[in-house]
C-alpha cells in the first residue's frame, strides 16, 4: 500500500548551517490494512519520512508509491488529487479556529468540491464515528486536546482515504486521551480497512497499536519488521526497545551462564524451567525480567543465571530454540 524505495531527503545548506541529510536511503513497505509505526530518537527523520509519503516534502531521490501509484512521477496537480486518498493527523491538531468542529470536518470535502448537503451529513456521520456527535458546533478552543485530535481524525477521514498518516498524534495528549485516541485509530483501521503509518517517539504507543514498526536512526532504518517477529529475533534493536531486560551488571561476581530468554504466550508454560532444571539438572536463578503486552500478545523476557549442567547446556538451549523460545547467551553484559 505504501512503498518507499531508497528515498533520500537532503535539506540544502542554509546560512551557516550545513546541508542536512534528514532521510538517508530508506526503503520500506506497508501492506494494505497494516498498522505500522515509525520510531526513533528526536531528529532521526521521522517527521520528514512521513511528510515524504504524501509529498509535502519532495524526495531528493528515490520513489514513493501509494496504492499502486508512483507519486514521485506525478505532476503537481496530480499529486494534489492523490493527497485526497492520504489523510494526515498532526501532533498539534492544526484545526482551524475560524470553523466549528463540523466546519473543520467539512473543510477537505469543500476542497474536493462536495456539495453542501452532502458535506453536512458526512460531517455529522464522522463526528458520530469519533464520538463527538454532540459537539458539532463547538469551536476548537472549547474542546480538550483529545477531543481536538478526534475532530482532526474525523477531518482526515472525511474524503474516505485509504491511507492515514499520523505524526506524533498523541504526543501532546495526557495518558487517558492518548489511550482513547489510539483506541479510535485502531478501530477506524479495523472498520474502514485503512492502512496506517504512525510516527511516535514512545515505544508504549507502538506496543499498544502497531502490527509492525521501523526503527529509524540518523535517517536510516536500523531495524524493522512485524512486532511478533522482532521480539523473537536475535539481537533485534527494535525487539530490545519493545521488551527491555536488564543485562548490565547481572553477571558480575557470579559463576554460571547468563541466558536471556524470550517467551511468548504460545510457549508451553513449563518448557523453560522443565528443560533447564528438570532435564538438565541445573540451578536457575532469575536475575531480571519483564513481561509486556505487545500487539495483543504477552511477551516475557527473563534473564536467567544457570549454574551446573555445563556440558548439557548447549543441547538444552538448542531444544528451547526448537520449541520456539528465543535464547541469547549473555557475556560481558551483551546478549549474543
Amino acid at each position: 500500500m505504501i512503498e518507499l524505495k531508497d528515498v533520500r531527503k537532503v535539506f540544502p545548506a542554509r546560512g551557516r548551517a550545513g546541508e542536512v541529510v534528514a532521510v538517508d536511503g530508506v526503503s520500506l513497505s506497508v501492506d494494505r490494512g497494516e498498522f505500522a509505526g515509525v520510531v526513533g530518537p528526536s531528529g532521526s527523520g521521522k517527521s520528514t519520512l512521513v511528510r515524504l509519503v504524501n509529498l509535502l516534502e519532495r524526495p531528493t531521490s528515490g520513489s514513493v508509491t501509494v496504492d499502486g501509484r508512483v507519486l514521485t512521477e506525478l505532476s503537481g496537480d496530480e499529486v494534489r488529487k492523490a493527497r485526497r486518498s492520504i489523510g494526515m493527523v498532526f501532533q498539534h491538531f492544526e484545526l482551524l479556529d475560524s470553523r466549528t468542529a463540523a466546519g473543520n470536518v467539512e473543510h477537505p470535502l469543500e476542497l474536493a468540491g462536495v456539495g453542501r448537503a452532502e458535506r453536512r451529513s458526512r460531517a455529522t456521520e464522522l463526528l458520530d464515528l469519533v464520538g463527538l456527535g454532540d459537539r458539532a458546533d463547538a469551536r476548537p478552543g472549547q474542546l480538550s486536546g483529545g477531543q481536538k485530535q478526534r475532530v482532526a481524525i474525523a477531518r482526515a477521514l472525511a474524503v474516505r482515504p485509504s491511507v492515514l498518516l499520523c505524526d506524533e498524534a498523541t504526543s501532546a495528549l495526557d495518558q487517558a486521551s492518548t489511550a482513547g485516541v489510539l483506541e479510535l485509530l485502531r478501530r477506524v483501521r479495523d472498520e474502514l480497512g485503512l492502512t496506517v503509518l504512525l510516527i511516535t517517539h514512545e515505544m508504549a504507543v507502538v506496543k499498544a497499536v502497531c502490527d509492525s514498526a521501523v526503527l529509524l536512526d540518523r535517517g536510516r532504518v536500523v531495524d524493522s519488521g512485524r512486532l511478533t517477529d522482532v521480539l523473537t529475533r536475535e539481537r533485534s534493536p527494535l525487539g530490545d526497545a519493545l521488551l527491555p531486560a536488564p543485562v548490565a551488571d547481572a553477571g558480575a561476581g557470579h559463576g554460571g551462564a547468563l541466558l536471556r530468554v524470550t517467551v511468548t504466550d504460545r510457549t508451553p508454560e513449563t518448557l523453560v524451567l522443565q528443560t533447564l532444571i528438570g532435564d538438565l539438572g541445573a540451578a536457575v536463578e532469575i536475575a531480571g525480567g519483564s513481561v509486556e503486552t505487545v500487539a495483543g500478545g504477552r511477551y516475557g523476557r527473563l534473564l536467567l543465571r544457570v549454574t551446573g549442567g555445563a556440558e548439557g547446556l548447549d543441547d538444552a538451549v538448542q531444544r528451547l530454540r526448537t520449541g520456539g523460545v528465543l535464547v541469547e547467551r549473555v557475556t560481558a553484559g551483551v546478549a549474543r
Binding site: 504524501n54 509535502l56 494534489r80 488529487k81 492523490a82 493527497r83 485526497r84 492520504i86 489523510g87 494526515m88 498532526f90 498539534h92 492544526e94 484545526l95 482551524l96 479556529d97 475560524s98 470553523r99 473543510h107 477537505p108 469543500e110 476542497l111 474536493a112 477531518r155 474524503v159 498518516l165
Partner: peptide, 24 residues
C-alpha cells in the same frame, strides 16, 4: 501547520489563502 494541514488535504494555493490564511 494549518497551511500544511490544508495542503495535505489537496488544497491548491489559492484554496489555502481563501480557506485558511484569510479566515484564520
Amino acid at each position: 501547520g494549518k497551511v500544511e494541514a490544508a495542503l495535505s488535504m489537496g488544497a491548491r494555493r489559492r484554496d489555502v489563502v481563501r480557506t485558511v490564511l484569510l479566515p484564520e
